[in-house]
Design a protein around this nucleic acid. Structure first.
Lengths: 415, 415
DNA sequence: TCTATTTTTTCGAGCCTCGAAAAAATACTG
DNA sequence: CAGTATTTTTTCGAGGCTCGAAAAAATAGA
């Protein structure tokens, strides 16, 4: 069952703590780190001087302004950008993008590409992904050895171990073990995450005051996705990435969903569902494959302009989202919500019905106090989340154990 | 933010680990503990001899049978029943029960009492609870000083900090800080937990093979409650005990629920809802205050006997539970379910519609493989869960820190 | 009685964190 | 401009903890 703490775990964990403190705070002094970790100054001093010698942290000159205090000025500690690098790959409907990120979190290089994910064969989908990664790796400015991790985010369901895509709306193919494919191909550790989960991770880094311990990120796009942070941790299902908010049941036996079932929230609130209702095609109409962002914006404009089926479509979307959120809140209690994606730009059309619905539910008791924030552009968020995921892996799994632990193979076995 | 590990935390945590290993395994030898905790034999030896000196553990003679092996026989370590005791209080509709449990988990004494919780004043409800505890504390056979913790479980919503009942269907009064009341009254640390959460805790101890990391306990009673264990931990809401499965929305604007809203799962599957449908009173009929277990059993018998409104009522209950579980599974992935309470005895009437509904949902993809277990009697489970909660608190918060930490005033300062 | 085997304890070595004191680096003061 | 106050960082010895190896303990078989 649970495992005891060994003596060497202690150093490893406290190293991880120091690295994490630096990543969070940016340029904290040793004293600040000691305060946030509640470790002694001596310990922080010892650990940070190790980390500097190892090239993981760097000292930066006395932090910028405001150093008008007496006494020895604080020396800021920062992440050494050259300590490592990671690569992010984001695969969404008809779109593939890749970026190289340095250890401090800055984008070094990137590439984007349109492709027809819905009709591609399994092999060419995988091939495109490995090819775009390979092109980045062959960048002459890049030291390939420094790539410590590849993180791939996909729209769809992934497994809890972050190895494979199980199912995705962007391709008919299932069970693609992208993480293993990348590892075999490039010899670099890889993980595979759900796009909405990465949005949530990114929001937490972008605005830790607003999105701290408990919040919800909902992607309002062709489909409906969710990333959920509870008690400061990303929530995942027991076997999969979980949190399939879009496929909670809004109306038993209701509108036809892209997943083939009926009555899901997505079947009322996904772009195709709003489109279907606005065009009065009936709830049984087969979902269209894609609606362009421009078409959705036109729809929203029409809905804003006049009463009619467009406005009614957004109302129905709001109702489905509201009842869904109400059920979700019954389980987890209310929390701040970030609406992301193209339809988040039409949240003004969605919000009234949403709030009205949520007020009818147990979870919406204090519905007025539930706050919504909108962010129309999901891609940058997903990439940021991926980058942080990968970087934190490097922090905790590679740099925290320290030099001795890593070069264990060169130790005793040589003798 | 997160806190570093100090040097003395190490011993504390490993002591907690050893105590936990003994509580789980019953009579493990030092060698077995070393294996499960992956600490060295020397460490286990040192820690366990401390714990024995402190009277927390006891050595039991060479474990029972099968000791036909060569070599020095293993010495079993057990919890010393006299090390401490805890008290459990279970408050449910019209019923109050209390028990004293020794450190090894055996019931020492108990008392039960019927009362009319729905009509009692706030003062007399609190008064009855404190009075029954006081009577147990005055038991001449009991060393009051040994009571280290009182755990109270209530049907209803409690806060995350386990201090107060926020709302309960068994009384019109709200926000009763039972934990604080008990602490003030008796000077004994107290916690207040949700009944279904305690059911889940108990199931995990009763059958750790079946109910290990992820499972769901659903109370089918007058209301519908849920206790949820995910990734080995009890799931709670962000502010409250959470997991209000019964108040997820089954049908927007549907049947009238006891909570005053419409369309909740409970409004179709709670005893009062089954009763209402079986009597064909209409979905708007005010929920009855209570239905006796005998009446429910008669209803189930009638439903088994012939087609008719009784059978249809159970079908509707199954449908609501199925769609609700489907939505839940969309969020957390499927997991084993234990149905507890009087209507669990009628699960044969509920199951077909439930499985049919769940098969219509995304979460029910592999609905045939989802297993259900039934347990008609919830009270013993709730008490067991409470007892384990309280005992584990004693393990971790009182015994793990050790003597020095507790009696710091009597230690070094004497010299 | 002796030997093989397994469990448990003992003991010294090696780390790690901590507190106190020293060292370092700056702003203020006259 | 030298001296003092103040704050940050490093140094150093003390005390604890876990570990591995070896010893001790306790039993079954020969």
């Amino acid at each position: 069952m649970s495992v005891g703490i060994r003596h060497d775990d202690l150093r490893r964990r406290n190293r991880a703590m120091v690295i994490a403190a630096v990543r969070r705070a940016g340029q904290p002094s040793r004293t600040e780190i000691a305060a946030t970790t509640s470790l002694s100054h001596s310990t922080i001093s010892a650990i940070s001087s190790d980390l500097i010698v190892e090239g993981i942290l760097t000292e930066s000159k006395p932090s910028e302004a405001g150093s008008l205090k007496r006494g020895r000025p604080q020396v800021g500690l920062g992440l050494n950008p050259e300590a490592a690098a990671v690569m992010t790959v984001v695969l969404s409907l008809n779109f593939l993008s890749v970026a190289v990120i340095d250890y401090a979190g800055q984008v070094i290089s990137e590439e984007q590409r349109r492709l027809d994910t819905l009709t591609m064969s399994r092999e060419s989908l995988i091939g495109e992904c490995t090819a775009i990664v390979r092109r980045r790796l062959e960048d002459p400015d890049l030291d390939v050895r420094s790539i410590a991790r590849i993180a791939l985010a996909i729209q769809g369901i992934t497994d809890t171990r972050a190895r494979a895509m199980l199912w995705s709306p962007i391709t008919p193919h299932t069970d693609i073990a992208f993480a293993d494919i990348f590892e075999d191909e490039f010899g670099i550790p890889a993980i595979m995450e759900n796009d909405c989960n990465m949005m949530a991770v990114a929001l937490r880094w972008r605005d830790p005051d607003r999105y701290r311990d408990d919040f919800i990120a909902i992607l309002l796009s062709h489909g409906i996705g969710m990333g959920l942070v509870l008690k400061g941790e990303l929530f995942t299902g027991t076997h999969s990435s979980g949190g399939e908010f879009g496929h909670m049941i809004h109306r038993p036996n209701g509108a036809l969903c892209r997943c083939g079932r009926r009555g899901c929230v997505e079947a009322y609130a996904g772009n195709y569902a709003i489109w279907r209702n606005a065009r009065q095609m009936g709830e049984d109409a087969e979902p269209v494959a894609d609606v362009s962002d421009a078409d959705m914006r036109a729809l929203a404009a029409a809905a804003r302009e006049r009463e009619g089926p467009e406005r009614e479509a957004y109302r129905k979307a709001g109702e489905a989202l509201g009842y869904g959120l109400g059920s979700l809140f019954a389980l987890i209690d209310p929390a701040p919500v970030a609406m992301v994606g193209v339809s988040a730009a039409a949240f003004d059309l969605i919000e009234p019905a949403l709030r009205q619905a949520i007020a009818q539910t147990a979870g919406g008791q204090h519905s007025k106090s539930i706050s919504f924030d909108t962010e129309p552009n999901e891609l940058p968020l997903i990439r940021e989340g991926c980058a942080m995921r990968a970087l934190i892996f490097v922090d905790q799994e590679i740099f925290a154990p320290g030099v001795q632990a890593r070069s264990g193979f060169g130790g005793k076995n040589v003798a």
